[in-house]
Computed example of a mutant assay.
Amino acid sequence: MSVYGMGSLFCGTEEQLDNFVNEGFVCIGWKKEDKPELYAILNNIKIGDIIYIKALPLSSKTMRIKAVGIVTTALKTENTHHGYEECGNEIGIKWLKSNINKSINIDDSNINKRKGSLFVETNTEYIDKIISFI
C-alpha cells in the first residue's frame, strides 16, 4: 500500500473537493502533455492505496488535510464524473472521511513536492497522522 497526497484546487480558484467526494473519484487538472511527471505517478496508483486531499499554500509550512480515501478503481483515461470534466483522468475513491480540516506542520526537506498537485507521501510520521484523522 502506498499513500499519495493530492490537491483539489484547480486553476488557482476552482475547488473540486465536493465534486470528488460526491462522485467518489479524484483527478488532476493537468493534461498529460503538460505534466507527464504527474501522469507517471498516476499510473503507479493501485487499488487499495490511500489518497489524501491536502492544501499547502506556497508561503506556508502547515499542510491542511481535507479528506482521506482508499483507491477502488485504477486510472481511467476518460471522465465518468460530472465535476471538473476536462481532466482526462480519473481514479475511483471510497472516501473514509471527507470533512477532516486538520493540519500537519511540515518540517522536512520535501515541502516543495507537497505543494504540487500530486506526490507520493513517504514520511511515516505524516502517514501516521493522516491515518489517525480517519
Rank of each mutant, 00 (worst) to 15 (best):
T13A: 13
I130G: 07
K46D: 05
V3M: 12
I130C: 05
K46A: 06
I104C: 08
F20D: 04
Q16S: 11
I127N: 07
N79H: 09
F133M: 14
I53A: 04
L56C: 08
Y4E: 02
V3A: 07
V68Q: 08
I131N: 15
I93D: 06
I51G: 02
N43T: 10
G88T: 09
L75Q: 00
G88A: 04
L75F: 02
A55L: 09
N89H: 08
K61Y: 09
C87N: 15
Y126F: 11
L17Q: 07
L75H: 05
V120P: 00
I53M: 09
D34C: 04
V3P: 05
I65S: 00
K113F: 11
K97E: 11
W95L: 10
G48M: 04
C87H: 13
Y4I: 00
G48I: 09
E121H: 08
G5F: 08
T73Y: 01
I70Q: 13
K76A: 07
I41W: 06
N101C: 01
G24N: 09
S98G: 09
G7W: 02
G7K: 15
H82N: 13
I70C: 07
K32V: 04
F25D: 01
C27F: 11
G48H: 06
I65L: 06
L96S: 06
M1I: 11
E37G: 05
A55C: 05
L38V: 10
I93N: 00
A74I: 05
T13E: 14
N89Q: 04
M63C: 13
W30R: 12
K94A: 13
G29L: 01
K61A: 09
Y84C: 08
K46N: 10
N112I: 12
T124A: 06
I28E: 08
